[in-house]
């Protein structure tokens, strides 16, 4: 499967270089995504207002299309514009808009998945991080989070109650988050 993100980036690149057909395809490709976001957020408004907002977002993308850096990923840029404009339009129409990041999880998640090596690297990184935990915590994370085994089984194997297991998992996850954060800071 080709990655839609690369596609969009290619289309917008061509569009900004003067290819009107590529630009039309880009806008047609983006519109359903924008429409989905507007629909999910604007239940208090009628469908015609939804379409007005969709068009406002498309206009904003149009007016600001030169601010995308062609050597940078398209989606963070696109998402930023859509979010700004949707919030702005809902505010102007008298409704507080809340845009939880989950609404965008689909489009945001698409980028890392594009690279088949990314998943392998992620698995390797996870293993490296788990190696820094004590063996028992690491086993809890592997069993519950990675292999998704039943808590009762894992508890029996490790001789822990389910409550203790949950607490152990929670602590291990916090520790992992701290380790992962420290790790990325070093790379900066």
């Amino acid at each position: 499967m080709t990655n839609a993100s690369d596609d969009w980036a290619g289309l917008l690149r061509a569009a900004n270089a003067g290819d009107g057909q590529a630009y039309a395809r880009f806008l047609h490709a983006v519109t359903p995504v924008v429409r989905g976001i507007v629909r999910a957020r604007g239940r208090g408004f009628g469908p015609d207002q939804h379409e007005d907002i969709v068009q406002e977002v498309l206009l904003a993308l149009h007016r600001k299309r030169h601010t995308w850096r062609e050597d940078h990923p398209l989606r963070p840029w696109l998402y930023a514009i859509v979010r700004y404009k949707v919030v702005d339009e809902f505010r102007a129409r008298g409704s507080a808009a809340h845009l939880p990041i989950e609404d965008f999880s689909e489009i945001l998640a698409a980028d890392p998945g594009a690279d088949p090596f990314a998943a392998r690297d992620a698995a390797r990184q996870t293993e490296a991080l788990l190696g820094q935990l004590d063996p028992r915590s690491a086993e809890i994370v592997r069993a519950l989070s990675l292999r998704e085994e039943a808590p009762a089984e894992v508890g029996a194997r490790l001789n822990m109650t389910e409550g203790a297991l949950r607490v152990g998992l929670h602590r291990a996850m916090k520790k992992l988050a701290a380790l992962a954060k420290g790790g990325t800071d070093e790379h900066r």
Partner: peptide, 20 residues
């Protein structure tokens, strides 16, 4: 205005000057 018409109008406009 129909969204498809809007897209056709936008696509017919000249490309933006580069952002430097």
């Amino acid at each position: 205005m129909n969204t498809d018409d809007l897209i056709a109008d936008l696509a017919a406009e000249p490309p933006p000057p580069r952002f430097r």
